[in-house]
Amino acid sequence: MAHDPPQMQTSDPAVMRALAHPLRIEIMEAMDELGEATASEIAERLDQSVANASFHLRLLASAGFIERAEPRGREKPWRSKHRGRNLRPDPDDPSSIAESSELGALVVQREAARMAAFLRAAPAHLRSGEWIPAVTVSTATFWATAEEMAEVAQELATLLDRFEDRRDPANRPEGAVKGRLFSTLNPDLDELIQGADDSEPSDDGAS
Rank of each mutant, 00 (worst) to 15 (best):
R72L: 11
W78P: 00
D203E: 11
F118A: 05
D190V: 08
E130L: 15
I42C: 00
A146G: 15
L87Y: 11
D90Q: 08
E102M: 02
A196K: 11
M28W: 02
A124C: 00
N86A: 13
S202D: 06
F163K: 07
A43V: 09
R166H: 03
Q109M: 07
A37K: 05
A140N: 03
P71R: 07
A30N: 03
L160C: 13
E102R: 11
S11G: 14
E147Q: 13
E26N: 14
L181S: 12
I42Q: 00
S101L: 11
R180A: 07
P201E: 15
E200I: 08
P77L: 02
S80H: 06
A37W: 06
A63P: 04
R172G: 05
S40V: 14
L57V: 03
L57R: 02
E191P: 00
L57G: 04
A122D: 06
E130W: 10
S95E: 11
P77K: 00
T38P: 04
A117S: 13
D165P: 04
G129L: 11
A63E: 10
S183R: 13
S96R: 03
Q9H: 11
L156V: 09
A18K: 00
A122S: 09
H3M: 02
A196W: 09
D168N: 15
H82I: 09
T145P: 09
W131K: 12
V152H: 05
E75Y: 03
E29F: 06
L189I: 13
S49F: 10
R24G: 09
K76D: 03
M28I: 15
D197N: 15
L156G: 04
Q154G: 05
L87V: 11
D203R: 08
G73E: 06
A134T: 13
Q154K: 12
K178P: 03
A2Q: 13
Q9M: 07
V107E: 12
D161H: 04
D47A: 15
S202W: 04
K76I: 01
P123I: 04
A150Q: 14
R45T: 10
V15D: 01
D47H: 14
A176Y: 06
M115A: 06
T10M: 01
Q7H: 12
E151W: 01
E164M: 07
S128H: 14
T10W: 02
E148Y: 01
A105K: 14
D197E: 15
L189W: 09
M149F: 01
F182D: 13
S95N: 05
P94K: 07
L126Q: 11
M8W: 01
E33F: 06
R172D: 09
P123E: 03
P6L: 08
A170G: 01
S101Y: 06
D197A: 15
N171R: 09
A14D: 09
A61R: 15
E164T: 13
S100L: 01
P201H: 15
A63Q: 08
A157H: 15
S11V: 02
F182K: 05
E151H: 06
S11Q: 12
L19P: 02
H21S: 05
R79T: 07
N52D: 08
I25A: 03
F65I: 08
S100H: 10
A124W: 00
Q154W: 05
G84A: 14
A112M: 13
M1N: 10
A113K: 15
A112E: 15
M8P: 00
S199F: 02
A39C: 14
E147I: 06
R172S: 03
K81H: 02
W78A: 01
P94R: 07
A144D: 08
A196E: 14
P6M: 08
